[in-house]
């Protein structure tokens, strides 16, 4: 497996504000990565740095083994679809797609037209007259049809309804299977995309909080519920990331796998156990209240 992106100590500051703070990671070829985190966490900044649209303040960044800045060997193999992408106002959808076709070496024109039909895009309409959802669809069509070895989607579905979103997920997986490439998907609809992700990078306050295989994360936490005292007893010696109580009842979210030992322990205490979804896990990890509660519980 070759490394597509490697970041070491990547930092971007604006005055005293650290948008990206000493982030290191590496991405392997032909996998689907989820770049997750709350709004303003630094996800979009990282993607702008990868594509040389912003300049890092510090650290080292290599894409396809080279610096991306003003480097056609890197930039021609990248496709970055961002929610805030601007298009020339006088262009029609057709003009945007034809132009994208001249810029991306692997562009598949037939596929772009077929996708446009599936997303019901009016090819002759001017970009400035498109709805938010249609703008997102144009971005999705470009991102898929570019077949770029590194394709980055930053919140690509703003304004899209559930049908169009699932169409996007289906086409992405389908085309990924036929034309493997590295995909970075930034999203806060974590439940919707969690099934696709192979690896998760979680960003919070500009820092890398998690860099973990998605399968490991999916079974990486569970919750127990029951009376307060019993939950406390179960939690002793385990890593609890969240506690809630309602009257005499309590629940706790615990990091770790729900193996035989844990299940047996919970059963013996009469506690209910439940799996924790990736979304819930990430909400707990980035909720801001988890640390305080964890400290208070010990």
């Amino acid at each position: 497996m070759s490394v597509v992106v490697s970041a070491k100590g990547l930092t971007k500051t604006y005055g005293s504000f650290k948008a990206v703070d000493d982030v290191s990671f590496s991405l392997e070829e032909n996998r689907i990565y989820g770049l997750l985190g709350r709004n303003g966490a630094g996800k979009t900044t990282i993607m702008h740095l990868l594509t040389a649209q912003l300049f890092p303040t510090g650290g080292e960044l290599k894409v396809f083994g080279e610096e991306p800045y003003e480097n056609n060997r890197v930039l021609s193999r990248l496709c970055f679809i961002k929610e805030s992408q601007k298009y020339p106002e006088t262009f029609r959808i057709r003009d945007v797609l034809e132009t994208a076709g001249t810029f991306f070496p692997n562009w598949d024109r037939e596929y772009a037209l077929a996708l446009s039909e599936q997303f019901r895009l009016p090819l002759k309409r001017k970009m400035k007259k498109l709805s938010r959802g249609m703008l997102s669809s144009v971005g999705i069509v470009i991102g898929l049809a570019s077949r770029a070895p590194l394709t980055i989607f930053d919140e690509p579905y703003i304004g899209l309804d559930a049908v169009a979103r699932s169409l996007f997920y289906d086409r992405l997986l389908e085309d990924y299977a036929e034309h493997p490439r590295t995909v970075i998907l930034s999203s806060h609809l974590i439940d919707e995309v969690s099934g696709m992700l192979e690896h998760v990078l979680l960003i919070d306050n500009g820092r890398l909080l998690l860099d973990e295989d998605a399968d490991a994360l999916r079974g990486g936490a569970y919750s127990v519920a029951g009376t307060g005292a019993r939950v406390e007893e179960f939690a002793r010696g385990r890593r609890v990331i969240r506690r809630d109580s309602f009257g005499s009842l309590a629940s706790a979210t615990v990091m770790g796998t729900l193996d035989g030992e844990a299940r047996g322990h919970a059963d013996s205490l009469g506690l209910e156990t439940a799996a924790v979804s990736l979304q819930q896990l990430i909400v707990h990890l980035t909720g801001g209240t988890s640390e305080r509660k964890e400290a208070g519980g010990r």
Partner: peptide
């Protein structure tokens, strides 16, 4: 204003 953000978004170098 109209074309620079678009071209950069499509992976075009500033020099090009």
């Amino acid at each position: 204003k109209q074309t620079f953000p678009f071209a950069l978004g499509m992976g075009i170098r500033r020099a090009d």
